[in-house]
Design a protein around this nucleic acid. Sequence first.
DNA 1: ATTAGAAGTTCCATTATTTGGAACTCCATT
DNA 2: AATGGAGTTCCAAATAATGGAACTTCTAAT
Lengths: 299, 299
Amino acid sequence: MVLHKASQPLKVASDSAETPQSSRHGQIALKSSDNPNLVSYKSAGTGTLGKALEVLDIIAMSAVPLRFTDILKVVDQPRGTLHRQLSNLIEEGLVLANPDGTYDPGLRLMKLAAKAWSKNSFRTIAEPHFRKLHEATGETVHLGVLNGLEVIYVDKIESNQTVRMHSQLGNASPLYCTGIGKAMLALLERDDCAERAEKFNYVKHTETTLHTPQLLLAEIEQIRAAGVSHDREEHEVGIRCVSAGIGGEASSTIAGVSVTAPAYRITEDTILKWESLVFETARAIERDMAVSMGPRSQQ
Amino acid sequence: MVLHKASQPLKVASDSAETPQSSRHGQIALKSSDNPNLVSYKSAGTGTLGKALEVLDIIAMSAVPLRFTDILKVVDQPRGTLHRQLSNLIEEGLVLANPDGTYDPGLRLMKLAAKAWSKNSFRTIAEPHFRKLHEATGETVHLGVLNGLEVIYVDKIESNQTVRMHSQLGNASPLYCTGIGKAMLALLERDDCAERAEKFNYVKHTETTLHTPQLLLAEIEQIRAAGVSHDREEHEVGIRCVSAGIGGEASSTIAGVSVTAPAYRITEDTILKWESLVFETARAIERDMAVSMGPRSQQ
DNA sequence: ATTAGAAGTTCCATTATTTGGAACTCCATT
DNA sequence: AATGGAGTTCCAAATAATGGAACTTCTAAT
């Protein structure tokens, strides 16, 4: 099907797939989605597993706890089938059945995720640099990785300890309106980038949100040149951030770091200082990544 | 929210199951495991899903990154089968294929877990009381829930900000050597408790670890009477903790809160103060739980 | 109370997926 | 260039999932 090269990892034949992406060096393509506010994977590809996860996603992504019938309305499945799928998910600990007849994502997910987090080699390598960035700026810093049309935050250090620290770990945000998101887009091949730009479900969160592919792509060009990106209250009023992408040539993961702070607290000087700090942090992480993966570890 | 009575959630007929447990009021039984150091679910129950999760668990629980063959040696499956299962897991984003041919748990787990965490109604309800406990003691506090033979920590506030806060969220510890674990055991029916006591894979972490069912059960009796439990450097030298269980009659979840600190810093007076604080916190959480679930919400 | 009808659960012949063995392709070593 | 280890593909046979319909609750309305 495709030409093998190294003892590369599994290559999935994306049979009837819809949106292949990040086809760089034989890496597995993630599934994307239509991304409304709540992104849910559009599975139905991977047989039984995919169907089970579709149900799990519905339960996890819903804003309110769902009952059997609520789920039934969303998944296109006969009652009997859904019932068994839920039973299986519950038995596996992936879904929790509340006493009031609603369903919630289960504890086992947290357990698995804790491992995913602590084992994630990108995060581990990035951590010291990331922390140094926090110390240098004294502000909140984020570390996120690219996943389809969104950023997933894998680490965060708060400036203000009254806010819960882990509140956002694992959370996903759209790429088009976040500093890290735009910085990561700028690292993609232009085609890929443009393709994704078309797919967003743009929501104009604030006055300055880049809410069309054109606006977004124009800015991406600037970011490409500058090496850093800005979030000028594009996602939330009063919040600004400076960010740099990580990955480029060498790495198989595309990621980004950012410094965030309330707009009122930031001067132009601060911004400039952050630009170089953030940029240097990204470069440092890239260097460590390259080392840890060996000089040439992709095809 | 609603006070349905018996529009009870799914009840799983644990067909050929091995270790049913917590059979209290029709709640779904979680699967247990043999619990060495790293607990991994012993699935193989729920058809295809279970098998897929078995592979995922192996990948997640391993201390070192595994290659295809490493996994193959552990799962009792033919190569072709494992290969397809991995493909599916990768395609679903549950497993990440590293460029060097090893596999790691995937990002989608973090995304799901983030939702599981923020939606967890127990944690949400417990939070204010939990936070108050931290403020009253100034020390590290934990919130954990019972899952088979282990505690899963669902919240934590550190006293000492130099340590990473979220580093333990979602992590699991054995019941027999943790304050919360013992407090939770004390809430179970005696039979259930004794049954679990037999199943632990006791490791004598320190001098004071209760490393036999007898020692453990004897202490549980005391805890039952006292209403609070102690960890007297049983898990880690130099670390003590005071804890109280949450759940008892009303609730369907069994959980616990604890205050932890270095032994050298704690006086007997402190311990006494913590005992009542922790006890009161547990009671307050129970009250709020009862309210939110309606007066009598299980069959 | 009684009843209509949601909401949830079970059953089982049909259908679709998964299985497992073996053959095949690479790659790294000797 | 030859061996063996590692990963991949294929397909008939075995197994598990499907989906419709019948059956139980429970809920709200008469």
